[in-house]
Write a protein that binds this DNA or RNA. Structure first.
Lengths: 193, 193
DNA sequence: CTCATTTATTGAACTTGTTCAACGTTTTTG
DNA sequence: CAAAAACGTTGAACAAGTTCAATAAATGAG
């Protein structure tokens, strides 16, 4: 049940067998139907999740009703609203399943317990947060410097697995452009792929 | 010498007096002249720094020679290229003093030593990285959803101290717009402030 | 299978932001 | 303090991206 999770953890740090078991026991397996929400705006995020199966989008809706996708999470990705989770304030984000999915969830309480009981867990989340942060810095720079065309091509190249499973509407919301414009970009680059 | 640093650390975690002293002893004070570089593209980033006095910009130069500012750091801010620092790969960033400045630097080796000798330091950097990450997520959403006008007004409101110390060229590079366009925005909003 | 809903495409008019060049102002520096 | 360099503003022409509306194609639920 937690095989994939254990593999994932091993890519960041090394835990002894008892540590690994103690930590993985804190997660519970949840299945969630396509289009359902794991978190909605206004709720306090009380979990961190690890995707075992399926596909999620983490997004925000702005004053004008437009959606901006912070990231998509497929198998082997972590999901949470780290802001709401750490501050305890209401979330400004939605986390929605885009396919029938399966997630391992750890509660805030259990995660904090793990920080004290298994010191290496502190390192695990420091390392993971650093990696996520580096990825977001790169995306920030790309968004400041590249045109939508380039960003779309980069997206396809970087996330080929995502690409096949997402509608152009979703991809446009990630790139920060209208889906009509994405459609025009796609037309323009046919043949260049 | 490390008063400001100690205050800063106390806003994130609590350390005993010996822990605090042991950790702060790992830093060395550096002064750096306006326009000098703490880090240049291609170098491996071997330090993490805490700004005691002055002003820095952390930026990237893209293929077309345009600069994108990741962030500005004034007194009480931390600076590093976390990507290069953790991976050991050459940096893609520049860190430049925009005023005569003073920084406390900790080497990679000493920081890693601190992780093992003072377990709470692991928590310190986990917490700090989380906060930075949350701030960057917000900026990402703003960049995807807001016009340059709004982003400029937000910037002034959020960083009034930075605003007075930065040229419009620097602010434009942070907002992701040309400085000519920033000039036009400024003209348009005169009176609305 | 089929009707309803969602997704994708296209065009035309529009808005936002860029580019380039010119010129005035401020800041540095010898 | 004078000359050079950097910074800021402006306008005109252009490019990138949006908006709205119409229509086609794909998907999904009963």
């Amino acid at each position: 049940m937690t095989n994939l999770l254990q593999q994932n953890i091993n890519t960041h740090i090394s835990l002894s067998v008892p540590e690994m078991e103690a930590f993985c026991d804190l997660f519970q397996n949840i299945t969630i139907k396509k289009k359902s929400f794991l978190l909605s705006e206004g709720e306090v995020c009380k979990f961190e999740g690890f995707v075992v199966k399926g596909l999620f989008r983490v997004y925000h809706i702005d004053q004008n009703g437009f959606e901006q996708v912070l990231y998509f999470a497929v198998e082997n990705w972590w999901i949470t609203d780290i802001d709401s989770f750490t501050t305890g304030k209401p979330s400004q984000l939605f986390i929605q399943a885009l396919d029938d999915s399966e997630v391992l969830l750890i509660s805030k309480k259990d995660k904090e317990g793990a920080y004290t009981n298994i010191p290496k867990i502190e390192k695990l989340f420091r390392v993971m947060t650093q990696k996520t942060h580096v990825a977001l810095q790169r995306r920030m720079i790309d968004n400041l410097s590249k045109t939508a065309d380039q960003r779309y091509l980069d997206f396809i190249e970087k996330y080929p697995a995502h690409y096949n499973r997402l509608t152009n509407l979703q991809i446009a919301a990630y790139l920060g452009i209208s889906h009509e414009f994405l459609s025009k970009i796609r037309k323009k680059i046919v043949g260049k792929k």
